[in-house]
Amino acid sequence: MIAVRPAAPDNVLHGPKQLSQEALLAVQRSGITSARRLLCMSELELVEALDLYVSDVRAVVAAAAAVCAPPPSTAQQLMREAPLPTGLAALDGHLGGGLRPGSVTEIVGASAVGKTELCLAVAAEALVTGHARGAGVVYVDTECGFKATRLLQLVVRSLQRRGVQADPHELLYRVTVLAADEWEGYEQCLSRIRALFQDDTRLATGLLVVDSIAAPARAHFERARLSERQRLLSSHAALFKSLAEEEGLVVLVTNQDEMSACLGTSWAHCVNVRLVLHSAEQPPAAVGATLAPPRRQLRVAKANFCSAASFDLDATLEGLVQAAG
Rank of each mutant, 00 (worst) to 15 (best):
R218P: 03
S260A: 14
A59P: 07
V4E: 04
S158W: 01
A324P: 00
A195H: 08
K241W: 08
S234T: 06
V140P: 02
D92R: 12
A123G: 03
L313M: 03
S73N: 12
D10I: 12
C270W: 01
A261P: 02
V108P: 02
L120N: 06
L127P: 00
V137N: 06
L252R: 06
T201G: 03
T201V: 04
K241F: 07
L243C: 11
R100W: 09
P72K: 03
E258K: 00
A244S: 09
T205G: 04
E81G: 10
R231T: 05
Q153C: 09
R296H: 11
T316S: 11
R274C: 03
V57W: 08
V54M: 15
P83W: 09
P6C: 04
T176E: 14
L239W: 11
A110T: 08
P294S: 03
V164C: 13
D56P: 12
V60M: 10
F305P: 05
G130V: 08
V57M: 13
E170L: 13
T316G: 06
V321I: 15
F311M: 09
V253D: 05
C306R: 04
V251K: 00
P71Q: 11
F311P: 02
P72L: 14
H94I: 13
L50C: 13
L38G: 02
A65R: 14
I193D: 04
V271D: 06
R100I: 05
R231A: 14
Q230W: 11
